[in-house]
Amino acid sequence: MTTGPAPIPLLSPAQAARNRRRRMRRLTVAQRKPGILGYAFLGVVLLLSILPLYWSLLVASGDSTSARDPNLSWIPGVHFIENAYAAMTNPAVNFWKALGNSLLVSTTVSASVVFFSTLAGYAFAKLKFKGRGPLLVFIVATMAVPTQLGVVPLYLLMAQYGWIDTMQAIIVPALVNAFGVFWMTQYVQQAIPDEIIEAARVDGASSFRSFWSIALPIARPAATMLALFTFVATWTNFFWPFIVLTPQNPTLPVALSLLQANYFVDYSVVLAGTLVATVPLIILFVVAGKQLVSGIMQGAVKA
């Protein structure tokens, strides 16, 4: 039954009006023509976004004096591989282990956030229960709580469980978050008609089954975006991993911070390592940048 055509929606007058407004809005998006100035301005912005990365490529492909060279060539040098290799094999940095850890943590956390957020979002959007409204408000309110300030007890907690320097210490506190629940609630609310759920229930599908085989597939676009943002956020996270992990078992940002903490610092090596560590996210950006853009823009409309 899940594959059948969606039932013809019966619109209430208010909903119909809302939809009309929405369509209007789409038609009336400002159609101003950008002047040459507009393009020039955006061009400069784009240049400023890329220039620091390009400059670090120039330094990373040079030698230890490149970072301070006033006449640095605009064409990359030939030492990039060599420098990147030096960064990745520095015994104090554990680069490969860090890469593995970062991939493990970011994928696990993304998968878990998507699963638990969709589950909770489904409950908030489509199931009726006492306290639904206040609980959702509570979740949204927690987003404004700077939980980062609880690091001392959190650290004590991790020490208690013997989790210092383990990946559990990073993964477990991040398994689900308020933003994810809120985001999925919003999406499920508007994307899944109540009657599909109701129909499935009447047909005898268990609640979890209707979640799994109806809600989850329909929620996929929003879930993908949530996964992407969680992935980026987890990959770039530094404060907590830096506290709870050590140089022997780091994530990539922690490992990068070690590249610089050395008695002698060769910045062409540091920046080569930095670039290599950024490559996975650049790939992600190339593949899914469009999704990131539309994710930001959809999230904003609702916020």
Partner: peptide, 27 residues
């Protein structure tokens, strides 16, 4: 505005977002 290659420009300004703060700080 009614830009040509909208997505290109939008992605372009978003690029720095995928660079970790640690990497930004080192650079």
């Amino acid at each position: 505005t009614n830009l040509r290659a909208k997505t290109f420009w939008r992605m372009g300004v978003l690029l720095p977002y995928v660079v970790a703060p640690v990497a930004v700080a080192l650079i």
